[in-house]
Write a protein that binds this DNA or RNA. Structure first.
Lengths: 215, 215, 215, 215
DNA sequence: GATGAATGAGACTTCATTCAT
DNA sequence: TATGAATGAAGTCTCATTCAT
């Protein structure tokens, strides 16, 4: 986990690479499960190999190092975690039927909850390593800033231009917003792993945030 | 990190134990720094020993296992992290000059921010391992529920009885509150390690929460 | 050396396992020599690795723990040490040409002396650990009772039915017999490691036992 | 356990030394128990210290090394294990009322069984280490030959001169005798630690030996 | 005489990684 | 592509022993 800027390179590389073999799929799936459960540092490649019913050498044939195995899990996920959603949502906002920030927030929560539910374990891996692993954090930060903060900013601007969320100091309030959103997803998906989020709770969250912002 | 219910036992044990030697203090201090920086799993006892200018054996003479070294850091801190504060605050509320939930929240944030600033690294260790280490999480959860949730609940009740925070579904709203508070402290002290919290931001946070709750 | 009943399991496991690599053979051979000479507890895996010209990790790759290395030496030997011989001898007695207990005893001594001479070191390991290691003793005792005492008892019965060894309290006399046999093999093969047993001494031993029994 | 001829020196030294303190007694007693149970190599000085309720340093203050602690247990016992008995018995034979080798053997077994019962654990330590520890065996062998074999030989001669045990090749038969005696005491006191020897069994043993010898 | 903190060599074991097949 | 034997560095931990108090 030493080289920098490898995220970009890796994304390129993955885009170009052939499609996975069956063994590769098993390796990735098993690694996700184990990394999510016990963390990257506490999971040995031997354990992954055994549980994936694959020779240990096979892992290294495909991924070279354990580090790159981790990135092979995280990187393709990164592209989906915010951007795709953001683009989607931005499309909806601009074009169609999302008129208020309330609606946007509700859509955002609903959409992401569904996405994280479908990829809970990868999200756990990502969060755990993001917090635990200094090097990875340094790697991910610029990516995160660029893709998440920026787009969210734009959306925020959009609604301010429309007359919503007026007279609010954007930077300061967005911090509060992200603080809550981060706390929400991490607590529900990483810490309380068996938690189920209800429709009602989404409404609570949206209301909490909206009131907080408007204050 | 296998045996359960060792928290209680360890607390007893520590209360009874003689006071630390100079070397012990150096070990603990160094371990805190390294665990905070790189995480427990990525820090070797050899590294701790070297940086603490102590023989590796000395660590094990005093703490037996690396696990127990971690707990020797976390456990004494746990007792201070919430209860003491809560008791203090409860005293202030009941007796003296805290009249509103706003005031309480502001006091809480101010007080804990100071405390975590003074113990930033231990807090980082605690949070990182809480998220990373399943076993430790299981160990800490009951303690957390009992000491944090319970006391907060009482305080909440207190203000509801006084007429504040009326007509609010306590359980649901407290969840939002904790979500925000958790997100706030973790992001500021664990992720953004060089962040400085201003007076202004505390006010933002209090306002955000109060509006969120009242809504 | 903690889990019980692992003997049976290990036997199964070994029967199923692939055949040894060259390195494994060197490891086992070297371990036998060193354990025989200095005892299991006084032999380090580093020493075994060095003398076997193998990386220390290789030992653990194959045998997992030092304990299992010891058992990997002892277990396959156990199956040969008595049962096979007993079956052979029983066959001879029943079918062919062993008519008297004298003959049987002489055959037994001769056969086992040859066997132990060919496997002197493993026998030394077995005896030393049997005496030294409480856990191993508990593990081996039931096996020993079942395979050795039982078969010997049957043979004894056989000759009593034929009219030999009459009027002798079987249990009490067999104790004396085993006492002598045990003393004989342990002293000659484990304590006096350079001792050579002559034909004459075998006769002495048989005569000593036969007289002792008949008395 | 390196230096040779230290047995003699140690005996002198012990004879000259002051009498033991209370702590020393506890150390020795605890060490005997632990060495008997688990063997010298598997017992740490830390464990002895803890169980003896003594600081680890105290053990080394008194005994210098763990080796010398072992010898401090074995050496005083050695002087009693055969010589004293032999002298006693020789006295009885010469002067008083032991007329036959039968009687002598019965006396010998009875006397030594009582002695070993009273010092079972030290005997276990002695035997286990004698078998396990090459260096100690080399140390003890000459002592054993001189004190045990020699005296036994004299006694044997005595009875042969009296007309008993005639026409028997002394060397060969004494080997059988020692083989049995060794097997008897080791099996009963070291291997079958909870065994109780009955009067009847002593008679069996004497009869077995006498017949064996006379044959 | 007794303590117990401290040591550092060395024990067993784990691990990511390599490479011949 | 896949294997799995082999590696050796590094990890945690144990131990007999020393020494200042």
């Amino acid at each position: 986990m030493t080289k920098s800027k490898l995220l970009e390179g890796l994304m390129q590389e993955m885009a170009n690479s052939k499609k996975q073999t069956v063994k590769q799929q098993k390796i990735i799936q098993t690694a996700i499960e184990l990394f999510a459960e016990k963390g990257y540092a506490n999971t040995s490649t031997a354990e992954i190999a055994k549980q994936a019913e694959v020779a240990e050498g096979t892992i290294f044939k495909h991924y070279g190092t354990k580090d790159r195995l981790l990135l092979s899990i995280i990187v393709p996920y990164l592209k989906e975690i915010f951007p795709s959603m953001a683009d989607e949502v931005i499309g909806e906002i601009m074009g169609r039927n999302i008129a208020t920030f309330d609606e946007f927030l509700k859509g955002f929560f609903t959409n992401r909850i569904q996405f994280f539910n479908e990829n809970k374990e990868i999200f756990q891996v990502l969060v755990k390593e993001f917090i635990y692993n200094q090097e990875l954090r340094n790697e991910l930060f610029p990516y995160f800033s660029e893709n998440v903060l920026l787009r969210f900013g734009k959306i925020f601007d959009h609604f301010q231009e429309r007359g919503e969320l007026e007279n609010i100091p954007r930077e300061r309030v967005m911090k509060m917003l992200f603080t809550f959103i981060g706390g929400f997803f991490v607590s529900r998906f990483v810490i309380l792993t068996d938690y189920t989020i209800t429709e009602e709770e989404i409404d609570d969250a949206v209301r909490f945030v909206m009131n907080g912002l408007r204050g």
